[in-house]
Write a protein that binds this DNA or RNA. Structure first.
Length: 486
RNA sequence: GGGGUUGUAGGGUAGCCUGGUCCAUCCUACAGCGUUCGGGACGCUGUGACCUGAGUUCGAAUCUCAGCAACCCCA
């Protein structure tokens, strides 16, 4: 091998090494956030990063789905960022859960404030004093509102972009009030179903479990959580729904007059999703070449790459006519007529997860076809003409199914029912263990200690054959997921 | 919570141990011109950096301390 060849190879390796393999998840994730222009972590405050325009467009399309799902029977609102200390400190258990992570505004200009103001870590204490004013009678119930806002938590653990932040930029939080506990419990169930549907539209399967009592939302009767299994086998909590019962209603005196003229406390729920859903989207579908985005949320759904030989114009003309045919059907299409060579464009748009690429060159034009390449690697030639747009939409649908099935298969392969502590310890190194558990708090803590992982909680509606609790040995059909969590 | 590593152009790096050779290396990116274009093109020309602060010193990218920030591993 001569020097020239050696140099060639070195340079090619350097180029390909730009994105580490997905098997090295942590580094792959960080590099991808930058290369695909999702968020820029270089903002000079710890735990706060900036959405690139491309990342923000992705975020907008994703949150559009949440809005659609909620707008059926919720109203969108917006409450202030600042919460007076006096309101924030009313609910004891809630304070205990959050006060170590609160940013405080203590000054207005140079003057110290008489009442400190908290930057919301979540908005219960901002919203509930107003619900007290808004809710008068049973006719006002059920009340369902949500907002999409930023929240602030002074995280002491290591921050991680989109996953553990000091400013959560995209917290969708819903709050509901109902006449009875049962209705509120039903609302929690509805919320969970909406969230499952939300993630299904992102082609992401989730684990759903009831969090153990020591891990529920501060001030809740119970909490249901959705978790996604990340490529490295750790889990990411990507949604929660909490039954608050009358806990907050009593503190904030939120009452309604029932049919018999009596004042009763409302029963409340709250449920939330943050930009962790974007982290999950990236982690679950991405591959060694970059992002892989479901059609529905891709900022660019179709990219057209002209393959030019000699005369540009005839080829570009065909590209433009296809571009406008797609645009007329509200498809987000981009004609990449830049100066780079086709190969460079392929890599660029693959990094950004574009679901469908169309290549048009002299050969295609001669044959009356276009070449399409789906982001999952499937390559086809489709006839040019009236049916092309529909054919591409069909490909998009197929891609969606491929992504979901692939993700589901991965998730299932990462969950294992274990029958000993040793087996549990080994399983949580690379996935989720389903662990027989009697349900007691003592055994739960003992499991976390001895397995070295967290209890996610009881899987819902899915019993295991009777087995002995791994700690106390009592026979039980109960179990819990255990995993190392993000 | 504990430990480790790191901070040099838009991005990635060399130099740091052993202070002066450095108006700082190479790759990439960006701008201009030309030839190109079916999987990361090439030539020529040009642009651009030592995290912040203090200290040691005749002299600091290099040594010391502090701050800020980032990443990795473990709990």
């Amino acid at each position: 091998m001569n020097d020239a060849q050696e140099t060639q190879i070195t340079r090619k390796d350097e180029r390909e090494a730009k994105l580490p393999p997905k098997s090295n998840f942590s580094e792959w994730y960080h590099e991808l956030l930058k290369s695909a222009e999702i968020v820029d972590v270089r903002y000079p405050v710890k735990g706060m990063s900036v959405w690139y325009p491309f990342g923000f467009a992705l975020r907008s399309h994703v949150y559009q789905i949440i809005k659609e799902l909620l707008d059926v029977d919720h109203y969108e609102t917006q409450f202030p960022l600042l919460i007076p200390e006096t309101e924030f400190m009313k609910e004891a258990e809630h304070i205990k859960g959050f006060e170590d992570e609160v940013y405080w505004v203590t000054h207005g200009g140079r003057d110290p404030l008489e009442v400190k103001l908290a930057l919301r870590p979540t908005s219960e204490t901002a919203i509930y004093p107003m619900l007290k004013l808004w809710i008068r009678s049973h006719a006002d119930l059920p009340l369902r509102i949500y907002q999409i806002v930023n929240t602030f938590r002074y995280e002491t653990k290591h921050t991680r972009p989109l996953i553990r932040l000091r400013e959560i930029t995209s917290f969708k939080e819903a709050h509901t009030a109902h006449a009875t506990w049962e209705e509120a419990a039903m609302q929690v169930e509805i919320a969970v179903q909406r969230y499952i549907e939300f993630y299904r539209r992102l082609a992401i399967p989730c684990l759903v479990s009831k969090r153990p009592s020591w891990d529920k939302f501060p001030g809740a009767d119970y909490s249901i959580a959705l978790d996604v299994i990340m490529p490295d086998g750790r889990t990411l909590q990507v949604g929660t729904a909490h039954l608050l019962g009358t806990n907050f209603a009593k503190t904030y005196e939120i009452t309604y007059e029932d049919e018999h003229g009596e004042q009763r406390y409302v029963n409340q729920t709250c449920y939330g999703i943050s930009e962790r859903c974007i982290a999950a989207l990236i982690a679950v579908h991405g591959d060694d070449k970059g992002l892989v985005l479901p059609w529905r949320v891709a900022p660019v759904q179709v990219v057209i790459v002209p393959i030019i030989f000699g005369d540009r114009e005839p080829i570009l003309e065909v590209c433009r006519s296809i571009e406008s045919a797609l645009a007329r059907r509200n498809i987000r299409v981009r004609l990449d007529d830049g100066d780079e060579r086709p190969g460079a464009k392929f890599y660029k748009w693959e990094m950004r997860g574009v679901p469908v690429r169309i290549e048009i060159g002299p050969r295609d034009i001669k044959n009356g076809v276009v070449t399409i390449v789906r982001r999952d690697g499937v390559r086809k030639t489709l006839p040019m003409g009236d049916g092309l747009v529909d054919a591409i939409l069909a490909e998009a649908e197929e891609l969606q199914a491929v992504l979901y099935n692939r993700a589901k298969e991965f998730m299932d392969s990462k969950i294992k029912l274990v029958s000993s502590l040793d087996e549990a310890r080994s399983q949580v190194q690379s996935g989720v263990a389903r662990v027989p558990w009697c349900g007691s708090v003592e055994c739960g803590h003992a499991l976390e200690d001895q397995v070295g992982a967290n209890l996610l909680g009881e899987p819902r509606g899915d019993e295991i054959p009777p087995m002995g609790c791994l700690i106390c040995g009592r026979e039980s059909t109960g179990s819990t997921y255990m995993a190392r969590q993000y």
